[in-house]
């Protein structure tokens, strides 16, 4: 009787293979770093702010997010972000102007293709190399709100100080998709309002995890989008693994969005000995009312997926205003609830 299957479950690989993967990935890191440096030419600096040596920086590529940006800035200022570094990808709704007027923001702009810049990751990598070296950096989208254990009683500097002391360079988070009880687009959320007032619900426990040995990362999929739009092709469902908080060093490179990073060892954010490491959650406010209009536009632009036409049906379904809520949905209450549900963990940060 072979027991091969059991070890295959967690992709235990021989050490030589591990070393080979590391070598391959370190070559890739060099290539991506170089590529990012070249792509940095896309960016034009519009406003440059200043920050202290120990400042916590936030990097974000943004396009037409006028209804989210106020709350986004408010949330992250509340956490203790010292400075924002935005890349405005040719917004037309006034997002750029609004960001330029912020006292604690640096603004770059570009009209180049998001997709050609590896979905913005080349730009972000280049700017993090330029500004983020040795800083704790947040890398999030405008529709992602980070929460973590003991939020909001303890601000980000408390967390980063603890991570530094524990020698942990990265905080992992699950992308937790929030949705309304009614059909998408039914309840309004004016700019500046708390999106969590409209998007109250989430899926508590339908996430699958696969270990990917090449990058030594966990591929997490599931949630409402997998359940609604990818019932026949779950392997295409969006990746929910995120590494939103990282102590950056020059030469790091985002491998696949903010799902995984190089060097490869940084992806080992999960504990393998049975204990729990620390982790947070990124609340995804994608399903605000504008999602329907945006889906129609994104389908046209085809800037978001590697193989865009395959996702036409997904955009069509979203544009139709479906109802993601089910009787088995859970109403969001706070970090303690998410920890209790096993969606985040304090991992020893008592």
């Amino acid at each position: 009787m072979q027991r091969r299957c059991i070890s295959a479950m967690l992709s235990e690989q021989p050490p030589w293979l591990d070393r080979w993967f590391s070598l391959r990935m370190s070559l890739k890191a060099h290539r991506l770093s170089l590529r990012a440096r070249l792509r940095a030419g896309d960016l034009t600096l519009l406003r440059r702010g200043t920050w202290a040596r120990d400042a916590i920086l936030l990097f974000c590529t943004i396009r037409n997010e006028i209804e989210r940006i106020d709350w986004f800035l408010r949330h992250y200022r509340g956490l203790g972000v010292d400075h924002f570094i935005f890349i405005d990808n040719a917004s037309t709704d006034g997002t750029g102007e609004l960001l330029r007027a912020q006292p604690d923001a640096t603004l770059y702009t570009t009209a180049a293709s998001y997709k050609a810049a590896r979905f913005g990751q080349d730009w972000i990598t280049a700017l993090m190399d330029r500004h983020g070296h040795r800083h704790w950096c947040l890398v999030v989208d405008a529709d992602e709100l980070l929460i973590y254990p003991h939020w909001p009683a303890r601000p980000l500097p408390a967390l980063t100080a603890w991570l530094t002391r524990e020698d942990l360079p990265v905080l992992p988070a699950l992308l937790l998709e929030l949705y309304p009880k009614g059909a998408l687009g039914a309840a309004a959320c004016p700019p500046g309002a708390d999106p969590l007032a409209v998007l109250e619900w989430f899926d508590a426990g339908n996430y699958t995890i696969r270990h990917k040995p090449l990058l030594d990362t966990l591929l997490i999929q599931g949630g409402p989008r997998a359940r609604m739009f990818f019932t026949q092709t779950p392997e295409r469902a969006p990746t929910l693994t995120k590494l939103p908080l990282i102590r950056w060093r020059r030469g790091y490179a985002w491998a696949n969005s903010t799902h995984s990073i190089l060097p490869r060892g940084l992806n080992r954010v999960y504990s393998r000995d049975g204990g729990e490491g620390i982790s947070g959650a990124l609340l995804h406010t994608k399903f605000l009312p504008t999602i329907r209009k945006k889906s129609a536009i994104e389908k046209q632009r085809g800037e978001h997926f590697g193989n865009a036409p395959i996702f036409d049906a997904y955009y069509d379904a979203l544009a139709a205003g479906p109802r993601l809520w089910t009787p088995a949905s859970t109403r969001f209450e706070g970090w303690q609830q998410l920890e209790e549900l096993g969606l985040m963990s304090r991992g020893g940060w008592a």
Partner: peptide, 14 residues
């Protein structure tokens, strides 16, 4: 850790 939990920061070896 909590027995039977598989998540982004707990993924025990077999």
């Amino acid at each position: 850790g909590r027995a039977g939990l598989y998540m982004q920061s707990r993924f025990p070896r077999e």
